[in-house]
């Protein structure tokens, strides 16, 4: 996105939040995109405590994890927000996938049931957030139906969206593919795990969402 277009976009959505004191910021995306890693990074930086547990097993976050009054400051701007780490959205939940990570049959079924409820909860909250970070794994194909559906929904509700190209520390990361797939949105390239470029993310959210 050209710099001027980005500035105009920021100015436009900033006006939406001029009178709002606390912004409900939802972290959306597919399972294992790194939403909780990012939520933990933000929460650790500004509150000194994590939001939730991170795991390689998909659907680790199965209920909405919330941190209230997270005050982010950058470049003289401050944003007071409630951080909402959403369960990953997917179109299928197969208990057999969990067993590949060593879960017992009973554990896998339990996780599957909880995951489906979490997805429903995350979808219901699409209409209750004020802004969203849509987190994508830079090493995966970004042009998936889940990403398109989530972004399209937020757009239809006129909810400001920032795309987060996460996991840029991975050797096969291709964050440019996210820019190519969604040219009309700002994309911030980060590694939530390593903390890379997080300051750039803070700058854009404090400028555009306050």
């Amino acid at each position: 996105m050209a710099f001027e277009a980005l500035v105009n976009w920021l100015m436009g959505i900033a006006s939406i939040f001029q009178k709002r004191k606390i912004v409900r910021l939802g972290l959306y995306g597919a399972p294992n995109a790194g939403k909780t890693s990012l939520a933990n990074k933000i929460s650790m930086d500004w509150l000194g405590e994590p939001v939730g547990k991170v795991s390689e097993v998909p659907h680790e976050t199965r209920t909405i994890q919330k941190k209230e009054h997270v005050k982010v400051r950058a470049n003289g701007h401050e944003l007071n927000m409630n951080l909402l780490d959403m369960p990953g959205i997917s179109t299928k939940v197969d208990y057999r996938e969990f067993m590949k990570y060593g879960l017992t049959l009973e554990e896998a079924h339990k996780r599957s049931k909880e995951a489906t409820k979490g997805i429903i909860e995350a979808i219901k909250w699409l209409e209750n957030v004020d802004a969203a970070l849509v987190v994508m794994d830079s090493s995966e194909d970004p042009y998936t139906q889940v990403n398109i559906t989530v972004i399209g929904n937020l757009e239809a509700r006129k909810i400001p969206v920032i795309l987060v190209a996460n996991k840029i520390d991975l050797p096969d990361a291709e964050p440019e593919k996210i820019r190519e797939a969604y040219p009309q949105y700002p994309v911030i390239e980060i590694s939530a795990l390593k903390g890379s470029n997080i300051d750039e993310l803070y700058e854009i959210i404090t400028k555009s969402l306050r």
Partner: peptide
């Protein structure tokens, strides 16, 4: 539409079982 797709995902999640793990969906155009 995107809204219908989320309704479909929501409805699918309510039906997920050991025999029906869910759906794959793809839309071209809008």
């Amino acid at each position: 539409t995107n809204m219908e797709e989320t309704k479909l995902i929501e409805a699918t999640m309510k039906k997920v079982s050991s025999k029906f793990p869910g759906i794959e969906i793809g839309t071209l155009g809008s």
